[in-house]
Amino acid sequence: MVARTRFDADPCPVARSVNAIGDWWSLLIVRDAFDGSRRFGEFHRSLGIAKNILVTRLRSLEDAGVLQSVPAPDGGSHREYRLTDKGRALFPVIVALRQWGEAECFTPARSTPASSTSRTGRPLHRLEIRAADGRPVEPEDTVVEKV
């Protein structure tokens, strides 16, 4: 088995973020956690992932501080997975991926599930990157200072 490349000490925040999240299964677990999944079986049913892989990904997300395993509120012997503050901070990332996928990964004739607010039922505005003065920023408007 090939060892996974680690980016723990990489100076790039994108590389460290990828290191913390791990892979597509981890992002889908986080997505499901935002959508209300809490128990191992819920993640397993939703994702169709092998149990051993799910255990490994849940453990990695716990180690990264994205999820926390807590006793079930009903007093049962099982545990539930809750997003930590660090995990909740991934909300804009998940929304951005969802919006990008809606726009770029489906044909115009095929509708996709739309994200909306639970309070009003209205769709979310498209995420935009804005400068401190409020103007929209495009990729060519930015510069990243290398360490």
Rank of each mutant, 00 (worst) to 15 (best):
R4G: 08
T5I: 13
F7A: 05
D8E: 11
D10C: 06
P11T: 04
C12G: 05
V14P: 05
A15Q: 08
S17I: 03
A20K: 05
I21A: 02
I21D: 05
I21G: 02
G22N: 02
D23A: 07
D23V: 03
D23Q: 08
S26N: 08
L27K: 00
I29V: 15
V30H: 07
R31H: 15
D32P: 07
D32F: 08
F34L: 08
F34M: 00
D35K: 08
G36Y: 00
G36N: 04
R38E: 15
R38P: 12
R39M: 12
F40Y: 11
G41Q: 10
E42G: 10
F43D: 01
S46V: 07
G48V: 03
G48Q: 02
A50Y: 09
A50D: 15
N52R: 13
N52V: 10
N52F: 06
I53W: 09
I53E: 13
R57W: 01
R57M: 04
S60R: 07
L61Q: 00
L61E: 03
E62H: 04
A64G: 11
A64R: 01
G65I: 01
G65D: 05
V66P: 07
L67C: 01
Q68A: 13
S69L: 12
V70I: 12
P71Q: 02
A72V: 07
A72H: 11
A72G: 12
P73W: 03
D74W: 07
R79G: 05
R79Y: 12
E80D: 13
E80K: 03
Y81R: 14
L83F: 11
T84V: 06
T84A: 06
D85G: 15
K86Y: 10
G87I: 01
G87A: 02
R88G: 04
R88P: 01
A89D: 13
A89R: 11
L90Q: 06
F91Q: 14
P92W: 06
P92I: 01
P92V: 00
I94M: 10
I94Y: 06
V95N: 02
A96Q: 04
E102K: 08
E104F: 11
C105F: 10
C105N: 09
T107M: 11
T107G: 15
T107Y: 14
P108S: 05
S111Y: 00
S111C: 09
S111Q: 13
P113C: 08
A114I: 13
A114M: 13
S115Q: 09
S115E: 13
T117N: 13
S118N: 11
R119Q: 11
R122P: 02
P123C: 09
P123T: 02
R126D: 08
I129E: 05
I129A: 10
R130M: 13
A131K: 03
A131C: 12
A131Q: 06
A132S: 14
G134C: 03
G134H: 03
R135S: 15
P136G: 04
P136T: 00
V137M: 01
V137F: 00
E138W: 07
E140G: 12
E140K: 10
E140Q: 11
D141Q: 00
T142G: 02
T142E: 07
V143F: 14
V143Q: 06
E145M: 14
E145V: 15
